[in-house]
């Protein structure tokens, strides 16, 4: 058995080599840069640079935008998922396809398109003024960046939530309402808690990248919104102070590792293992034969 296991572990080798080459080694290089100064002497000043007023401000704005975007994504995703899960399988496939489709377009192109839409003389303002309202001044604002991030990351919030919710058996929901739960209680007492694993991975996938993104802020913020990602990028590309850039990067990574540790733990463990004691065939509750995951 041990030998079989060892042979099976060999299958992971290509990935292990890949990640050593492109994740582990670069990470070690960044950490080395982070803790040395330009002359190669050990120094923590790059890490501490995180707390300078400019950097701290950029960090707080990044945090604010990431939090707002994550919350908006959650608030958009849940009602959407509740509607989609009720659809017949063919329509569900279409809806999911429709939601994922934007991801097939080039990212930069998508952001440039959004820039045009949101610009002061853009399509959005044409519609708004056409309806007789005051034009919106969205271009180059925090709001524009938030719209961009939500636009880009919503599918990543929706899909894991959809997966966990579509695994909930219809009979479990019926049981809740049978026991006296109103539709609202069914959501808050059953659907929401049972979808927590999906919500957690959704948050991880949305929050972390939106915290570190800089391209969206560049394009939709018009250089006026300085996120911590923009500052790090500039240290590498313009100031060419790799040590400082690496230091800020490492500090940010540390912050997020601590912040995310609570979700990572739960994501690794299965949410509710099914144990087979009496040799009975136990399907997931309401096992309908069709795995909705397959749709994705």
């Amino acid at each position: 058995m041990d030998r079989n296991r060892k042979q099976r572990q060999l299958l992971a080798l290509p990935y292990v080599l890949w990640s050593i080459a492109f994740t582990v080694i670069p990470l070690l290089v960044i950490i080395r840069y982070a803790v040395t100064d330009k002359d190669g002497h050990f120094s923590v000043s790059n890490l501490l640079a995180f707390s300078t007023p400019v950097n701290a401000k950029a960090f707080l704005i990044s945090l604010e935008i990431a939090l707002i975007c994550t919350v908006i994504c959650v608030l958009l995703a849940y009602p959407l998922v509740m509607v989609v899960r009720r659809l017949r399988i063919s329509r569900m496939t279409f809806m999911l396809f429709f939601l994922i489709m934007p991801m097939w377009m080039n990212f930069i192109l998508r952001m440039l398109a959004l820039q045009m839409i949101l610009s002061n003389n853009g399509i959005l303002n044409m519609i708004v003024t056409g309806l007789g309202f005051q034009p919106l001044a969205l271009a180059n604002t925090k709001a524009a960046v938030i719209i961009g991030v939500v636009y880009d990351y919503l599918p990543f919030m929706m899909l894991p939530i959809f997966n966990t919710i579509s695994d909930i058996g219809e009979d479990v929901l019926e049981a809740a309402s049978d026991l006296g739960a109103s539709p609202l209680s069914v959501f808050f007492r059953v659907i929401l808690p049972m979808s927590l694993p999906g919500l957690k991975s959704g948050i991880t996938i949305v929050f972390v990248p939106s915290m570190t993104s800089f391209v969206i802020a560049d394009i939709l913020g018009g250089g006026k919104i300085q996120l911590i990602g923009n500052i790090i990028e500039q240290e590498f590309t313009r100031s060419t102070n790799w040590n400082l850039g690496s230091g800020l990067s490492a500090a940010l990574m540390l912050f997020m590792l601590v912040g995310m540790s609570f979700t990572i733990k739960d994501d690794i463990l299965p949410s509710h293992p099914v144990k087979d004691e009496e040799g009975e065939k136990k399907e997931a509750p309401g096992g309908e034969g069709i795995s909705r995951r397959a749709v994705l």
Binding site: V172, E174, A175, A176, S177, A181, P193, G286
Partner: peptide, 30 residues
């Protein structure tokens, strides 16, 4: 009348227990 307003309860074929709750909370749900 919707199911939640009927003084009638159901035992389902596939049990339909709440997997996120322990036995006590499952029974105390109603």
């Amino acid at each position: 009348l919707p199911p939640n307003k009927r003084p009638i309860n159901t035992v389902f074929q596939r049990y339909a227990l709440f997997p996120h709750l322990n036995i006590y909370d499952n029974i105390a749900f109603g």
